[in-house]
Structures are given as C-alpha cells and as structure tokens.
Design a protein around this nucleic acid. Structure first.
Lengths: 190, 190
DNA sequence: ATTTTCATTGAATATTTATTCAATATTTTT
DNA sequence: AAAAATATTGAATAAATATTCAATGAAAAT
C-alpha cells in the first residue's frame, strides 16, 4: 500500500508548488511546465495526477475552502477582543506556515479576478468574508469598544487591510508581519 | 491636424481599456482580443497603435510612473498629519477618478508579480513605496504623534492596508472607500 | 479630381502553451 | 521469476493566443 501514499504525497507536492506559483505569478501566467519543473517531474506525469490546469486550480481552491476554518472562535468578552484574537491567530498561522498566507491570497484572487474559471470561482465564493464581521462590529459599537461609523465599511477596511498585508507577506515573507494590534486599531475606538 | 489628435485619443482609449482589464483579470489572462473588443476595434488596428501586448503594458506602467506624483506634499505640523493628508488625498483622487485606483493596483502588481516582463518590471520598480514613509514615522515617534515600534514595519502595515483597500475599490467601487482616518489609526499613537 | 497618406479590417500565420500518447522503467502481485 | 499494474518520460498533437499582412475605405494634400 505504499503506492497510494506515494501518490498522495506527490499530489500534495504539486499542489503546493502550484499554490506558490499561482500566488507569485497568477494563475494565467503560470505555465504547466513551470509547475512540473518546480517539482522536478515531466509534464506528462503531472497530467497523470491532474487532468488539467483548471482542475488543479480547483483542487487548490477546495483545499483553501476547507483549511480556512478561520480562527477566533474563542469566547470573547468584548467585540474588540474578537478582532484582536482573529488577527493575532491569523498572523500566527501565517508565520508558522507560509502556505496559509499563500492560500489566503489565492482565495481572494480566485474570488476577485475576472480571469478565474467559472467553476473555480463558484467554489471560491463559498468562503464568506466581510459580511461575517458586520454583526461583531455592531455589537462592539453598542458596547463602546469599536469606533462609530458604517459597520460594513469598517469591516471592509479591516478585512482589506488584512488582505493587503497577507499579499505582501506571501510575496515577501522576509519582511515579516506587523503587530496584530496595529491593524485592529482600524476598528478600535479611540 | 485632426489625424494626430484622433490617433492620440484612440491610443488613450486602448490604454484605459487595457488598464481596466489588466486590473480585473491580470496581464496574462487578458487577451488582445479582449482589449480590442472593449474598444470596438479590430485586433489589426490595435497592433497599428501598439506593437505588442507587452509594449502596451509598458506604456501603461510609464503612465503610472508619471501620474503618480503622490499627494501629500503640503507642509504638515505633525508627522501624523502627513499620513492623514496622504490617505485623504489619495482616497479623494480615487473617488474622483477610478483610474487612479486602477493604476495604483496595476503598479503594485507590476512590481510584485513574477509574471511581469522584465522590461516592464524595471520601470515599475522606479516608484518608491514603503521606504518613503520611514523617516516620517520616525519623526512622528520622536514627536509622539505616531505609535512606537519598528518604523519600517509600521510603514509597511500602513502601506499594505492602503494597497488592500485600493485593490478592493478598483474591483468593486460600488462598495466605496473607508474613512481615511480609520486607516491612519494604524500608525497613530493611542 | 487625383494622388497620397493613414485608418481599418479580418483572415492567415506564427508562437506559445496545454494536453495526449506510445514507449519504457519501476514497483507490486502472483 | 513472470505477469500485472503503475509511474515516468518527452516528443507529438491540439488548442489558444499573439502578431502579420494584403486588401479596402476614408480622409488629407496636391
């Protein structure tokens, strides 16, 4: 039963190589040969594992969908603590495993780009994003731990910032990540 | 002399169409026919105006390099005012002219992506980014208007946030932009 | 009004890139 | 150890996309 394991391992290898390249160059700009070269295998073999470039992309996005059991499910006394914990945990994950940051970027890209194949986009769209923060912002505003203003706009600002930071980090991890509390200050009451 | 004007106008049309598509789909995913279709002209004619897709990209990035005479040259009493004004002006520009936001994203992409043709990347790299904020952060820290911490990391956090917001706005302008002061809170002392 | 220049088209060609496949090597099963 | 199954290769083919070009129409110059 070694074969099965080996196969699974190889598939993973390909997936991670593709993830890296898709994030660094974009899906369209990444050639099958780039991926094959990166994992030192022939293109033919790559197609033995994945039936097409698009299916490969699809599998990655499916991975992202699962893996993204977002952090911050802990009980929080205040709404602001949720953001604090969320950002801190996410940054921690990213530091521990770079692929988390890459996956983060991949998913956002898949969602946003008009170049994403329809079938892939559909899957990527299942991750809920900004909206999930809105009720928490509203709670924090009642409570007085989060600043006043349109709750969706605040959520959006927070989310986009995280997004921008993740992008930078995925491309240049050597630059490091900022302190989570700095980013949380976007929503924190003054 | 009508011809010359007309030609210039048409060239601009192409450039803006390409800008929009490059931002929405990425350079590699954008087909020449996409651009041609968008400006309702034959591919042949498009090549009459630009000798290649890459040259078209190059011209766009050159435009971006010039046009990006960044805001915030005003005299500021405090370092924090610089960030305040910078963000406010930039957001204002983006709201007034969407192409500013698009250009912003295009330039960042050209800089960051490994898919960018070398010749284009070289040009894009000329816009100085994060580093320009570092001395201002340091000034603000002495002054007490900007929070403590690694100045480069703070600059980076600020810049990435702006970046993330611009990306979102370029893709979905209907969502609007957050208040500039929210973003500035990333660097503002508490 | 004629000539010349430039704009315009879209089908033809060239190039790049994804995908297939027949052949060979390796591993597993019998 | 032979047979069967699977992994692996890279050159051949197919598909997608960029680029050219010869022909035509429209505007400008003579």
């Amino acid at each position: 039963m070694k074969r099965q394991e080996q196969k699974e391992y190889r598939k993973q290898e390909i997936l991670y190589a593709a993830l890296d390249l898709f994030v660094k160059k974009g899906y369209a700009a990444t050639k099958i040969t780039d991926i094959a070269e990166k994992v030192s295998m022939s293109v033919g073999l790559l197609f033995h594992y994945f039936e097409s470039k698009e299916k490969l992309y699809e599998e990655l996005v499916k991975m992202g969908l699962q893996g993204t059991a977002y952090p911050g499910n802990q009980r929080c006394e205040h709404a602001i603590d949720f953001f604090e914990q969320f950002a801190e945990q996410l940054f921690l994950f990213m530091k521990e495993q770079l692929y988390v940051a890459k996956m983060f970027v991949l998913m956002a890209d898949a969602q946003r780009s008009e170049g994403t194949p329809e079938t892939v986009k559909e899957i990527a769209m299942k991750v809920n994003t900004i909206e999930q923060f809105v009720p928490i912002v509203e709670w924090g505003q009642k409570e007085g731990t989060i600043k006043e203003g349109d709750a969706l706009a605040l959520s959006n600002a927070f989310w986009c910032s995280i997004q921008g930071i993740a992008e930078q980090y995925a491309a240049h991890p050597e630059m490091g990540l900022p302190k989570a509390e700095w980013v949380v200050d976007i929503v924190r009451v003054k």
